[in-house]
Design a protein around this nucleic acid. Sequence first.
RNA 1: GCGCUUGUGGUGGAAUUGGUAGACACGCCAGACUUAGGAUCUGGUGCCGAGAGGCGUGUAAGUUCGAGUCUUAUCAGGCGUACCA
Length: 937
Amino acid sequence: MAKEYNFREIEQKWHRLWTQRQTYKVTEDTERQKFYVLNMFPYPSGAGLHVGHPLGYIASDIYARYKRLQGFNVLNPMGYDAYGLPAEQYAIKTGQHPEKTTFANIDRYREQLDKIGFSFDWDREVRTCTPDYYRWTQWAFQKMFNSYFDEDLQKAQPIEKLIDKFKREGRWPSDPKAQSDLLMNYRIAFLGETMVNWCPGLGTVLANDEVVEGVSVRGGFPVEQKKMRQWCLRVSAYSQRLLDGLDTIDWSESIKETQRNWIGRSEGTEVEIKVDGNPDASFTIFTTRADTMFGVTFFVLAPESELVDKLTTSGQRAAVEDYLRYVKSRTERERMIDHTVTGVFSGAYGINPITGDKCPIYIAEYVLAGYGTGAIMAVPAHDSRDYAFARHFNLPIIPLVEGADVSEESYDAKEGTVTNSPSSPDGSVEYDGERLVLNGLSIKEAIAETKRFVQAHHLGRIKVNYRLRDAIFSRQRYWGEPFPVYYKKGIPTMIPEDCLPIELPQVEKFLPTETGEPPLGNAQMWAWDEVNRKIVDKKLIDEQTIFPIELYTMPGFAGSSAYYLRYMDPHNSEALVSDRAASYWQNVDLYVGGSEHATGHLIYSRFWNKFLFDHGVSKKEEPFQKLVNQGMIQGRSNFVYRIKETNTFVSLGLKDQYDVTPIHVDVNIVKNDVLDIEAFKAWSPEYATAEFILEDGKYVCGWAIEKMSKSMYNVVNPDMIVENYGADTLRLYEMFLGPVEQSKPWDTNGIDGCFRFLKKLWALYWDKDGNLTATDSEPSAESLKTLHKLIKKVTADIEVFSYNTSISAFMVAVNELTQQRCTSRLVLQTLPVLIAPFAPHIAEELWEALGCEGSVCDAKWPQYDEKYLVETSVKLGVQFNGKVRFDMLFPADATPEQMIELATSAPEAAKYLDGMQVVKTIAIPKRIVNIVVKPKA
RNA sequence: GCGCUUGUGGUGGAAUUGGUAGACACGCCAGACUUAGGAUCUGGUGCCGAGAGGCGUGUAAGUUCGAGUCUUAUCAGGCGUACCA
């Protein structure tokens, strides 16, 4: 009786043994080189894992196991991003504490993950919602509060240095409130009165990356702009370093480009504009097109700008106020979709500093308060937005580029030769004793020249602007890290570091209080006793020694910004990470996760790490050296077609003959697009009596690629695959589906191929009586060639994450070895090592069956030897005029000349050479023989 | 609008980086074994054509002895972003 591949038994056995033997436990080992592999940790949602989740985990696990086999000391941890909105909203609905549901979800995730056979060191698990973890989130926040960004050094410094500086300069106020207010302008974590994205639907503020197209990412509720006092992180201070760092890391060009755009560096010029007849008022505009100074025909202020009130003349005040009311009434969303031209004249005129021309100052919503200075010089000829505005208000348009036709639209391109600048008869203008001439220069030269001129004559300065905003760091929510902050007579004060963590207080209700306070307002024990250094009942607040604690909590990205450091030293109660562990593990060598975090987590984390790097906590400026973005797994939905007003279903190929309604059908009762009719009848009572019109005796379903979602009945969870085929098949198949980085629909159709492959591999080791086939016989030359070809291919493929092609190579190799009836122990012992990263369970089982020592995880990755790959002869195509005419064998070491000689003298060549003359011959060893001929004259 | 990215059989996808396009797998067809098969094994399978042969990597041109790969234009899909001056 042949021995069966019993994946259930094998996988259970090895899960048990791996745990018992602590196979995946990692410790710092300075003898060995480290390698740090990391997955973006999951948010444990109530729905559990679906087949999309493990894609990245499998990909990184393969790499981690491969590196381990190569002798590296590999850190491959896993944990949970456990704070988040869904758990809180579930709590609001059901009254269940979010901690309870979150921990239940985590247990379910763990159970599912364990089935797949990852090499995670679970001793290092972190959960962002446990006090021993968020203690360090709070600690980092306090460190940011106590730091400022030194522009000259371009790094974070202790706030005390700044205080010293103020004292030296005599700018240090004596009043504590004034001190606090002054420092708030510099602290890296600071309280700011800023315009925030307020989402009434969620009852909280959101960060920029949590808002898309004017609605919240979670829930899709409208978002409005509101001025609020909030904790913020001065991410913008790190703009330049965040930008520069991109050149030092190994990420895909597209994600780096996304971050570059998000940071949005633009080099431009700030110019002071004086207001006609109002010597006290002046404003500053920002432009990247300094060359267009001579085309300015008006100025525009953002409606939110403080200048609006200052500049509006009494005659225009009523109109301006009307306009401001209109702007305020519009939601962010309306402003985004509707780009109709609106604006109002302020009554004031600005003076173009170079020409001295007076131009009207308008107020219009197309200018944003939050970017640049909130004021622009408008050059309608060369900016499409200014152009639309000028057309609408009948303002002059002055073209400044040779050949630019601005009768229909503006000429925005930065290419061409400047003309008309200035438009004076002699083409120049004198200012402060120097003549400025731009005519004849290219636009780029003109920009540089104007910058120089503006700078030299103190009309303004060169300025670099970034689009990147400071991150709003507080949320009006319950389920998040509490701030270790109390308000001492209104002054935000840090709770002493040695009193951390400040634990999340228990509350009865998770909604905001009736007075509109955040949910933490419901907590009774939420006041800070400064003398006894502990949390006390808020009834005791006396504003002398007992003060209220911050009611906000931190946003989701707080806990996920430095978790990779905590994995290095997860049980340390003295520090986020010990110096020893941080020095050993340095940073993440390979980070795997979705590209949807490009402008969120991946920016915040880089910022957070740079901050900790400035303080010597993190040892590398960039946290993630190489990033691989796994693609999304989309759902593949199946449809059945019900003939209208009947309970009869018609197969796909025949549906056009009827009037049908397509209905989503659970993909789990469809195989290879063929419906399991009995399962369908049992699926819902409605279909119990259904009838079917079949084709070829089968019911064929239609299909579509859609998002994986419950409502489409296309969610496939990994447990079912593991149940039916085993974890090794699941692992292989997820990788075989296509390149890791590519998004693709989940489709179970091909899974049998991977399952068959494992059965074939298994069959290679056992004879028909169930005995091991392995013998000590010398392997045949062809078996050695098969093996070494495989080693070479798999090694090269893993290095570039081309797992699908390495699996193909395994399939070919196993087929070849089966045909060769290979029984050589030497070959049979090498295969499990090669396959171990992909299918660890079967690899362990075979390794053990062969009587090898220890775990296959600790084996040595084999080296290939070119000598087994040498060909004695090689089959090449012989081309005439670039077309392959016949194939023939050449000695592998033939020189090009010999190849040409052999090819032209071959009998098959005669008919192509007849009546022709050879013009040119090309022979590339191991490639091709090409002969160019033409008819004899 | 801007930025990035992808177009190859019925399907997922290969192609040593400019050298015999379609590896491997699914599906399909034929056969073997079988009471049976959603098991296993063998062979076939880009398209047109009976055949020789011809045509084929979104489309059109170009460079080259030779292009899926390089250049230019163009079309289509996907992702990101949005009045950023």
